[in-house]
Design a protein around this nucleic acid. Structure first.
Lengths: 218, 218, 218, 218
DNA sequence: CAATAATCGAGACGGTACGTCACGTCTTCTT
DNA sequence: AAGAAGACGTGACGTACCGTCTCGATTATTG
């Protein structure tokens, strides 16, 4: 059984000895991932075919199968390699504003062609474990780590209660966005983001001595 | 061009005259929808084949295609015909309790084999409009209507603010559930439901004189 | 089991009592046979479908199946009802001329759209007994009977040998025509007919005193 | 656009360079043609299905379609590859005997299971050009070439007239055989062959000084 | 005139084969 | 050893007809 390829493709192990034979073509790897993303954003998950990816990447079909065991793994890696989503949390001095600004970025991305990719990987994830794992590990978790920091900042500043459950709070903030994104029963506007932030964070802030500087903006 | 079949199959038009030719087989219709649901709950969306459905329903493949133009429409109708999800809102005297009880039912269903069907139709909906429309119209909207009533009850009783945005509030309540259900980054427990309810509804309740009887449960 | 329909459709039996129930629609019968012939001459045997015939005849599919047990029987009856082929033998005083004139008519018919029908029924006859029987009984035999008479006339007049084998002679005359018609390796011209006649009948005429008046034509 | 496969499969072009990719499976090619012939001889043309051929050959259906665009082309190639029909002309010193011996072989073959194949390809040829072309090129023409030689021998020996039209003569000889074979209105016996030969060749031999050595045999 | 009976059109039914497409594997030659 | 090319067996796709069936409507004879 072959090892799953790392995203970078770099040999990270201490053994610097390169294996014999022709080395793996970096060009092919990149072309495959790029055409996967392209096709995902154009036609969604159900129309993505390995054959199409290989053709578009001008690559042998077997080269794809050699490195990715199935469609889910390919999508997962393609998504992971997608550097487009750099949704950072600012530090404005107000948790509400920090978070709502990042959420506005997120909904903008979800509304762009990139959103098709997110929708595709989540759809794929319903029948393919690799896909959903990739989404969680590559996309969700890193942002969560940043979010934790932001929340802690808020707690430290007295904007949020000390006993807050971060995961619950973050799911309450982002769940509605994903729900509207996937079910499409209502619009995903910046105003929605602000109202959502205000509603949820009101339930999380300290009872007394509350002093949110930019509270009126939300 | 043929009409898409209504879910009920009843001729809703005023013209009670039956069209010429052999009438549609109710038996076949039901068998197809039932085997669709069965296969969806067993193997998920990606393993569902029209051929398999037809075989299992002991029906000609053409009979499926005669009435459903594609897999999405079939899944949509099958899901719509699935009466399993009753999920009623009780009237306990407390909005928090009414809603949290219904949400507990929902997470229980999502965790059961029925959940596979929901997950499948949402996955399908990412590339097939029919599927997601069916989910919204057949499943989401009816429950929303009930939820509106429940919320209004809470407003009338002074448990919720008057100026509350119902859709925002309901998305804030149910979004986190769908998020955990689809992304599976965390467990969907009754305790989560309760905490979620408490957090979100705290942001929606009246500032003063608040004295919900079941408040301690959250 | 139902009776095969007679070609005419008339109740030829002595019992003049009409059976109860709605009588068979003569209009439908004719329309079916006509559209069968039309489709045969347009698209050949392999593209003939009962469904197509029924549609073109504006007739229910079951009406076709009620009266003809299979495609072969339908083609056979359609061919039999085709009154187009009245290839008569003249009586010019010369066997050679009598026969060659009839053969010229035949090749003309075979080259016309009617020829497609002949080709179709012969093709069908290779896998369907009914078709080939119909061709023999309805088409070949009646003409053979006339040909026998013509040949006998020639024998009586001393143009042909007394011990001639009529069937052998007629097959020798017509076989080459059917061969060229079906295999299409060479052209079916009137000149070919004349040369063929001359060649074969030279082998069949009396040794001496032979003096066919139209011999120079060959 | 893909090239129609040559019967031999050899690359006849000067470019000896093999094309890239996995080479065509000779095993599959042979198995397909063999099972085509088998099914043709067993069930005739109308019962031949590509699916059946592929199954019997233990081959993917797509492999059949990859190389043969339709049923006609498949039958044509299968027939062409059928080496069974050698049917050589002997050189006995007498044209009549040479030809009648070959014709006896032919009628024997037509009466055997192999005959079903001939009948099938001629039937197919009535609606499919490929089939009839294959029959002419692969079967008829090669034998005609030999027949020409045999006839010329007869002319040289003075058994046949110098001005004989070879094609006319050969059609006159073989046409009746094909006619009886396809229409089945009379038996195809060796005696028939002899009489036929005698009748037709009598019309083709020289007037005077005729003294065919083996004439008594006919 | 009503009842009976067989036909008609229409068209849905369970099937089978069609010809296409993508799957994931393989076999070749080239790099 | 990896690459591209592309054929392979497999199996689902969606379509077209098969021959059968159920309808309501029609058209005759019989009571």
């Amino acid at each position: 059984m072959r090892q799953r390829p790392s995203v970078t493709g770099h040999a990270a192990n201490g053994n610097s000895k390169r294996p014999p034979g022709r080395p793996r073509s970096e060009h092919a790897r990149v072309a495959i991932l790029r055409s996967t993303l392209k096709m995902l954003s154009e036609n969604g998950f159900s129309d993505l075919t390995i054959e199409g990816v290989a053709d578009q990447a001008a690559v042998g079909k077997a080269t794809v199968y050699r490195w990715w065991p199935n469609k889910g793994a390919l999508i997962a890696d393609a998504f992971a390699s997608s550097t487009v989503m750099k949704l950072r949390f600012p530090n404005t001095g107000s948790v509400v504003r920090d978070i709502s600004q990042q959420m506005r970025q997120l909904v903008k991305v979800l509304g762009s062609p990139q959103g098709r990719i997110v929708s595709a990987i989540l759809a794929a994830g319903q029948s393919d474990e690799d896909s959903i794992v990739a989404f969680r590990e590559r996309f969700l978790k890193p942002r969560r780590q940043e979010a934790y920091v932001t929340l802690r900042r808020g707690v430290r500043r007295g904007e949020l209660r000390k006993d807050i459950d971060s995961d619950l709070l973050l799911d309450s903030l982002y769940g509605p966005i994903y729900m509207r994104f996937l079910i499409r029963h209502d619009r995903l506007t910046p105003e929605f983001v602000d109202s959502l932030c205000a509603l949820v964070l009101r339930g999380a802030r300290c009872r007394r001595k509350v002093r949110p500087s930019g509270g009126s903006a939300n």
